[in-house]
Design a binder for these strands. Structure first.
Length: 297
DNA sequence: GCGACAG
DNA sequence: ATCTTGTCGC
């Protein structure tokens, strides 16, 4: 029904993408720009957002993009937007943004237009920020295109610029004893690209936090820890849970036998939700043509 | 041929 | 990302 995004892009496309990244990279602000970011208790921070994209098992072209907004510090879901999308680009390490970002940018723009009061003051992104092959990961990309503070949170270390998940690295992880403990990730050039963070007391595997846009690494790490009820920061975790649940419900409606779901009780209803799941695809789902490239001026 | 490989 | 059951612990 929706096949695309297969194979690896031609070298010419990759060069275009690299030029795009190099160009937008100049706009990244890797320091605190908001008052709440320097406040010890983050007072003034009221809404944190999270984005994620989940995939349909046997269809490399279909996915669900989600944007959620949570209250801070309560971390209760205030807004949820899940939408089925058709992926154009394949996954290529180092170019994640060109696969997932167009839909997330659209979601942010829709929120900005329809519910500006719910706009998050910071966005947690599933993936890296400046901890990237060319210093411009998906979190930076989303930050620059939306002008929102963004934090990159990766579940695995991207082995770039000399960083390696080797014995020494694992030793450092062993030294992280309590939630909030972290150590710097130094690139070959001597620059700190991010920090490995033990997100809470009962989590052994660290998170790799890096600056996306308009926030310092120190504030990003501190806020990430502050948003972790479990290993994954609640905004991203909720976006993940809800996008996967949306796919599951969509599959059911279309007659696909329900897989032995372990849990889906986590998704309670938010105060605001653009649309629900209906068998009839929303009429205006494609009213706006899909952009092949990620732009927004 | 071998190792790497965010999601 | 997704494929997957039980299991150990609070």
């Amino acid at each position: 029904m929706a096949r695309k995004a297969a194979g690896k892009p031609p070298e010419e496309i990759l060069l275009d993408w690299k030029r795009e990244q190099a160009s937008l990279k100049a706009r990244v602000v890797d320091r605190d720009t908001e008052a709440w970011q320097r406040d010890p208790a983050f007072s003034g921070l009221q809404r944190v957002g999270g984005v994620d994209v989940s995939f349909v098992k046997d269809d490399s072209g279909s996915a669900c993009a989600s944007l959620v907004v949570l209250s801070y510090p309560e971390l209760e879901v205030l807004y949820e937007d899940c939408r089925m999308v058709t992926l154009t680009a394949p996954y290529v390490s180092g170019f994640l943004a060109f696969r997932e970002l167009p839909f997330l940018v659209d979601a942010v723009q829709q929120l900005r237009q329809r519910e500006p009061r719910l706009m998050p003051q910071v966005l947690f992104v599933d993936g890296n920020g400046v901890l990237h092959h060319r210093g411009f990961g998906v979190a930076c990309h989303l930050g620059v295109l939306t002008d929102l503070p963004c934090i990159g949170v990766a579940k695995k270390l991207l082995q770039v610029d000399g960083l390696e998940n080797n014995a020494l690295h694992k030793e450092k992880i062993q030294l992280l004893k309590a939630g909030g403990d972290s150590f710097p990730l130094m690139g070959g050039s001597g620059t700190v690209l991010g920090r490995a963070l033990r997100s809470h007391d009962h989590s052994t595997k660290p998170l790799y936090v890096s600056v996306g846009h308009k926030i310092s690494l120190e504030a990003a790490v501190r806020l990430t820890h502050s948003c972790c009820k479990f290993r994954i920061p609640e905004p991203v975790r909720q976006a993940d849970i809800r996008s996967r649940d949306y796919i599951r419900r969509t599959q059911e409606v279309q007659g696909v036998p329900a897989p032995p779901s372990g849990r889906s009780k986590e998704a309670q209803r938010p105060k605001a939700c653009p649309q629900g799941v209906s068998e009839e695809p929303a009429e205006n789902q494609n009213s706006e043509e899909q952009r092949p490239e990620t732009r927004m001026l």
